[in-house]
Write a protein that binds this DNA or RNA. Structure first.
Length: 616
DNA sequence: CCGCCTTTGAAGGCC
DNA sequence: GGCCTTCAAAGGCGG
């Protein structure tokens, strides 16, 4: 079971240590190695053993004599060798390369890690693969990167055998495991574009992001020798796997061939798009910068700052890996994706020109946005809704129904996103994007009342009367619980909530959540105030929910039925979808879910039923 | 074709 | 520090 502890580190790498894997199933993945390769590497292995044993005493020259002569790019080999030597020492202690810095974090050894060299001095395929996974875009592993070999990486955690040949493939495996944990015990099929993707439940949800932590990328190009067969000979970019190798879950845009999808791309596969839309020509910014070490932040900031970054002739960094947060204004304004110079010069006015020159750096997604990205397609598929406004309402309620652990994952993801974003674009401010979207809603919101709100509804839809909301008192256990975000802060005050875990402490941002948002509409409809409901009523309601946890609020049950009395639908607006059943909008409370922890997977995989059941 | 709708969270500005 | 505003995604819908 993935577990977050309260590391509280600020740097990206620190998050890695907050995640520990105790899945013994990983051990099974320490599979037997290719026999022939082993044979080839036996001599090297023994030499490495000797080296590791006499590491301190043996001189460099002796080591040089013993091991195969490295090829010209010795530095990479040397560092890799050091790493593997250390790995070998660890492996001899029980098969796991246990991090000296994170002792409680056993992670998988690659079977032939100890034998990184072939007899001819070249890196073994597995070692290459491993390096490719660990430093997908690495030219020369930095000392920091080597140092951070202690950090768990997907490379340690994924099956290292056989068919994983490219970083993209590695990401796919990890990303696809993202949601598997919440859906089943072993693996699930996640449908994306009708194509099922096998997902391994034991993969930690944050794994994909770990991949992109500081430790695992370098803003430099990968060494051709590390994985020559998978690199674009021209660019040095890992090649794009054949479509058959790639899950539609992680599509690459046509213009992004050879590019690694966004680290959070797994969150958006449903739409067939990366998290941030990738313009046809790709982004101007190199994605590897996402992985810069803190020590490199200055370098990266100077290199990749939107205003400083030099443009690659093809609009890409030499790595060809863009950052998805950057959207060319021209692209936004030119849906056809015309990036020709003419397109840029089309608009008159120097001011506009300047605006267009500035790439539009989007805000990093917050936790809820990440959640929506991931779940939208699922909801769409389950209830055949397509209207985003309605979907978002459902997702908003589902969000509140998430357990703290699950929300914590998204808070953590969002935190990493923000960190990456801030490191990528140090000078960027959310204010920069002000005005890029048309001013909207404000007037409406300011003037809106419960009455004109209903009057403004133009679509035929189910009316959720404000009166119902007024009935919803803070004393309503379900209502208050659902209304109140399942924030750790609220949950901490709730004895009935799932036992506090490290995860809550590990998400500093979520601890500062506003329990209740001042919504223009909600403010008028007696939604329990955050302060009152979270402090006083949370304890009472939680206790009541604890007692009510015996009831099984699976989605197949008309949850709205139990809540319809005490917990009317919380929609502030009608949903333009007449067939929406309240159960769609009232998933089990986090406390129910907690009580039904063992049924969690069932709940998650339970399709939302549009069948209206008797409220009784 | 553009903006609205709708959700939550983050961030910045203002008082 | 609290409040307000804007934006982030998404896609149908209305003017």
């Amino acid at each position: 079971m993935p577990q977050l502890n309260g590391g509280g580190g600020d740097d990206l790498g620190a998050n890695d240590e907050m995640i520990s894997f105790k899945d013994e199933g990983e051990q099974e993945e320490k599979i037997s190695e290719n026999v022939s390769a082993e044979r080839d590497l036996d001599d090297v292995k023994s030499s490495l053993v000797n080296e590791s044993e006499n590491n301190s005493s043996s001189s460099d020259s002796e080591q040089t004599e013993r091991r195969p002569q490295p090829r010209p790019d010795t530095e990479s080999y040397e560092k890799a060798r050091e790493y593997f030597s250390e790995a070998l020492r660890r492996q001899q202690d029980g098969g796991f390369f246990k991090s000296p810095h994170y002792p409680g974090y056993p992670f998988l050894m690659i079977p032939d890690l100890a034998s990184p060299y072939l007899s001819n001095g070249a890196l073994s395929p597995s070692a290459r693969t491993y390096l490719q996974m660990k430093w997908p875009l690495l030219d020369v592993p930095s000392s920091a990167a080597l140092k951070d070999s202690r950090s768990p990486t997907p490379g340690h955690l994924v099956k290292t055998q056989t068919h994983i040949h490219t970083p993209v493939a590695v990401y796919i495996k990890n990303f696809s495991g993202r949601s598997g944990h919440q859906a089943s015990e072993s693996c699930i099929y996640k449908h994306s574009n009708k194509v099922p993707v096998v997902q391994h439940a034991h993969m930690h949800p944050l794994t994909p992001l770990i991949t992109y932590s500081n430790d695992h990328f370098s803003p430099t190009t990968p060494p051709a020798h590390l994985s020559p067969e998978i690199l674009d000979p021209k660019t040095g970019i890992p090649r794009t796997p054949h479509p058959s190798e790639l899950s539609p879950y992680y599509p690459l845009s046509p213009g992004a061939v050879g590019q690694i999808p966004h680290p959070l791309g797994w969150l958006v596969p449903q739409q067939g798009q990366p998290m941030y839309s990738i313009p046809p020509g790709g982004f101007r910014h190199p994605y590897p910068a996402l992985a810069m070490n803190a020590s490199m932040s200055s370098l990266v900031s100077s290199r990749f700052s939107p205003h400083v970054v030099p443009h690659h002739p093809h609009g890409l960094h030499q790595t060809g890996i863009p950052h998805p947060a950057i959207v060319s204004p021209a692209i936004k304004q030119e849906p056809n994706g015309d990036l020709s110079p003419a397109a840029h010069t089309k608009s008159p006015g120097p001011a506009k020109k300047e605006d267009e020159k500035k790439p539009h750096i989007k805000k990093p997604l917050n936790a809820f946005m990440l959640y929506m990205k991931e779940m939208r397609a699922k909801v769409v598929a389950e209830c055949t809704l397509k209207e985003s406004a309605a979907i978002n309402q459902i997702l908003g309620r589902r969000w509140h129904s998430l357990s703290r652990e699950e929300q914590a994952k998204y808070y953590e993801l969002a935190r990493k996103e923000r960190q990456l974003h801030s490191q990528l674009y140090p000078g960027w401010s959310a204010r920069d994007n002000y005005g890029k979207r048309k001013k909207r809603k404000r007037d409406n919101k300011a003037d809106s009342t419960a009455e004109d709100f209903s009057a403004r509804n133009k679509k035929p839809c189910v009316q959720y009367l404000p009166q119902e909301k007024m009935i919803d008192s803070p004393a309503s256990s379900h209502g208050s619980m659902l209304d109140s975000p399942a924030t750790p802060s609220a949950a901490l005050a709730s004895p009935a909530a799932p036992a506090p875990t490290h995860s809550e402490q590990a998400q500093p941002l979520s601890l500062t959540t506003k329990p209740e948002r001042h919504h223009p509409h909600f403010s008028l409809i007696s939604k329990p105030s955050a302060a009152s409901s979270s402090s006083s009523s949370s304890s009472t309601s939680s206790s009541s929910s604890a007692s009510s946890s015996s009831s099984h609020p699976s989605l197949s049950l008309p949850i709205g039925s139990s809540g319809s009395q005490s917990t009317p639908p919380l929609l502030s607006r009608p949903i333009p979808f007449t067939s929406l059943h309240p159960s769609l909008l009232s998933p089990p409370s986090p406390f129910h879910q907690a009580a039904l922890h063992s049924h969690h997977a069932l709940f998650q995989s339970q399709p939302l039923s549009l069948v209206t059941k008797s409220a009784d």
